[in-house]
Simulated scan of single mutants.
Amino acid sequence: MRTTVLTTAALAALCLLAPASAASPVPSATAASATPAARPGPAVSPPRLGRCAPGELCLWAKPGFAGARQVHELSGVEIESCVPLPAGADAQSLANRTGRPVTAYQSAECAETGEFDTYPGGGTWVPQTPYRVRAFKVWEN
């Protein structure tokens, strides 16, 4: 099972990376053998984070923190209980800022027969979940 998880530290590191310059002061063998028409591709920018305040679990209907957003706070969630999303709703990106681990489930009943992943609570940003999230559980630390 593959999960893309971006922590706050990883996103900060991505923002610090600058695209390589086309002109290099040190010639390389690959640069000398490149055709004149070959040019580096456009710089890839890190994903833009959605709004999610500390203490919240935020779920978005679409990848890339887009679409309708649902916000859940610890005060409204019973710890270690399955919390299904509203009927017909699902999420394809999420941010866990609860300070506690959260397991996202493909199943609306938190059944472990479907896909599920647990995300750390210290600031985990997932721009695209590997499946549609239909329920979650918040765990004790």
Rank of each mutant, 00 (worst) to 15 (best):
T8S: 10
A9Y: 10
A12D: 14
A13N: 06
L14K: 10
L16H: 12
L16M: 10
P19K: 01
P19G: 05
P19M: 06
P19I: 02
A20E: 09
S21W: 01
S21C: 07
A23I: 08
A23Q: 13
V26I: 14
P27D: 09
P27V: 12
S28F: 12
S28E: 13
A29G: 02
A29I: 11
T30Y: 09
T30M: 11
A32E: 14
A32C: 04
A34R: 15
T35H: 15
T35Q: 14
T35A: 14
T35M: 11
T35E: 13
A37R: 14
A37C: 13
A38T: 14
A38Q: 15
P40S: 09
P40L: 10
P42R: 15
P42V: 15
A43V: 06
A43Q: 10
A43S: 12
S45V: 13
P46L: 06
P46N: 10
P47K: 03
P47I: 01
R48V: 15
L49F: 02
R51E: 13
C52A: 04
A53F: 03
P54G: 10
P54V: 04
G55Y: 06
E56F: 02
L57D: 00
L57T: 01
L57Y: 09
L57S: 10
C58Q: 03
C58D: 02
W60M: 00
A61V: 09
A61S: 12
K62Y: 12
G64R: 10
G64P: 02
F65E: 00
F65I: 00
A68R: 14
A68K: 15
A68I: 03
R69E: 05
R69Q: 12
R69V: 03
Q70F: 09
S75G: 06
S75H: 04
S75T: 08
E78N: 08
E78R: 12
I79E: 09
E80V: 05
S81W: 08
S81K: 08
C82P: 03
V83R: 09
L85E: 11
L85F: 01
L85M: 13
P86N: 04
P86I: 05
P86F: 05
G88W: 05
Q92M: 06
Q92I: 01
S93V: 05
S93W: 09
S93N: 04
L94M: 09
A95C: 01
N96P: 00
N96R: 00
R97S: 07
R97F: 09
T98C: 10
T98N: 11
G99F: 00
G99A: 06
G99S: 09
P101I: 04
V102P: 05
V102G: 05
T103N: 04
Y105Q: 12
Y105P: 04
Q106A: 05
Q106Y: 00
S107P: 07
S107Q: 07
A108F: 08
E109S: 15
A111S: 15
T113V: 12
F116S: 15
D117E: 14
D117I: 11
T118P: 08
T118N: 07
T118A: 14
Y119F: 15
G121V: 02
G121E: 01
G122F: 03
G123Q: 09
G123M: 03
G123E: 10
T124Q: 14
V126W: 00
Q128P: 10
T129F: 07
P130G: 12
Y131Q: 02
Y131D: 09
Y131L: 02
R132T: 07
R132C: 02
A135Q: 00
F136Q: 08
F136T: 07
F136M: 01
W139F: 10
W139C: 07
E140S: 12
E140Q: 07
